[in-house]
């Protein structure tokens, strides 16, 4: 496996360090699939940190996709179109319901 792993409930390190590792998983900072490594695995880049993840639960995943990884497994793809749609909705809301 890789040098660093995404999240997990890791706690072998001092409190704050492991807490930050933990945040990565729970908040599910999305990672980008940068390569497929065979056996249903692939490398996922989290803003600079690359980890090996099991992609078996997302059979259709491709290099370039953004995924949510939990306990070493990619469990969902991040749909960028939907993300942009929600962000657009926020912008509209800011116009309709401005916080004065």
């Amino acid at each position: 496996m890789s040098k660093r792993r995404p999240g997990g409930h890791g706690q072998s390190m001092p409190f704050l360090v492991s807490y930050r590792l933990e945040e990565k998983m729970c908040l599910a900072v999305p990672g980008k699939v940068v390569s497929l490594e065979g056996n249903g695995t692939g490398k996922v880049d989290y803003l600079g940190t690359t980890v090996l993840a099991n992609l078996s639960l997302l059979p259709e995943v491709k290099v370039g996709d953004w995924v949510i990884v939990h306990a070493g497994f990619a469990i969902s793809r991040l749909d960028q179109k939907e993300a942009r749609r929600t962000l657009k909705l926020f912008k509209e809301l800011e116009k309709i319901s401005p916080a004065d």
């Binding site: 999240g7 997990g8 070493g72």
Partner: peptide, 8 residues
């Protein structure tokens, strides 16, 4: 042992 994934 602390593990981060069941596969570990």
């Amino acid at each position: 042992r602390i593990v981060y994934s069941p596969e570990e």
